[in-house]
Amino acid sequence: MTATIARTLDEACAALADRPHAVVLAGGTDLMVEANRGGRDMEDVVVVDRIPELRGWAQHGGSLRIGACTTCAEIGDGELASLVPALAQAARTVGSPQIRNAATIGGNLGTASPAGDTLPVLAALDAEVEVRSASASRMLPLHDFVIGPKATALEPGELIAAVHLPVTDGPQEFLKVGVRNAMVISVASLALVVDRPGRNVRIALGSVGPVPIRAVEAEVLAAERIDWSGNGILDSEVVERVCELVADAARPIDDHRGTIAYRRHAVDVLARRSLRRALASEEERNGL
């Protein structure tokens, strides 16, 4: 039995080079659930949540690097929240206050659950995952990193060091449907990012497919039809079509949390609401 509490990134990478199949443990909020059930062997663990390089965030020009062990509580609050409001909102819907104090963005990525709350936002922002090992460092776009339900492209000996994402100029939304008002696994979620200077719209869906899904056709249509030079409003017929395309993009399953039909319907509704919040005129917004 070995549990290495790594103090530096190099130390963690060295431990993983020695023991490439060791469990990399950050906040523990997913792994320990499995361990408590007897479903996860914890004989060999590398604990990474005390590594300074993996904690906190930094802005470099228009880009953010968020350390893998930054907690959901930290992402949901403060200056970071104002830079990536959709990510902050997603982080605020994760579990309970206790869970958000422990759960990390790297853990959310590593677990790669279809219901991972931050993943749709990271998908919408074309985030890249910084992966490190003793011998190398590589950057993987989110869609190359999350390759299936609870499956990632991490190789033995690798760990998630950080996630990189752009700071965009424009509204961002994250909406999540759960059967309870708090502390609930998402039945469907949607992230919307409007990049005004880039004149593009990005929509990503959670819990309605094996991995976060980008609604590309919907994005293209919305970006084409927004009056970028005017007030940025999308007319209602286009909104209808965009929402249809969002629903079409979903690939939901039936499970104990929701049905295919409901999930498809829900992302349609979430798309409509997020577009209205993001693109509504000043007067409309005041009425919400």
Binding site: A3, T29, M32, Q98, N101
Partner: peptide, 24 residues
């Protein structure tokens, strides 16, 4: 981690102790 009955503070942070690996 769904009920909070095991809530403690670890280094000042409120967490569910059931989800904290003791060795960590």
């Amino acid at each position: 981690g769904e009920c909070g009955s095991c809530t403690v503070r670890v280094d000042g942070r409120l967490v569910c102790s059931c989800l904290v690996l003791a060795a960590a």
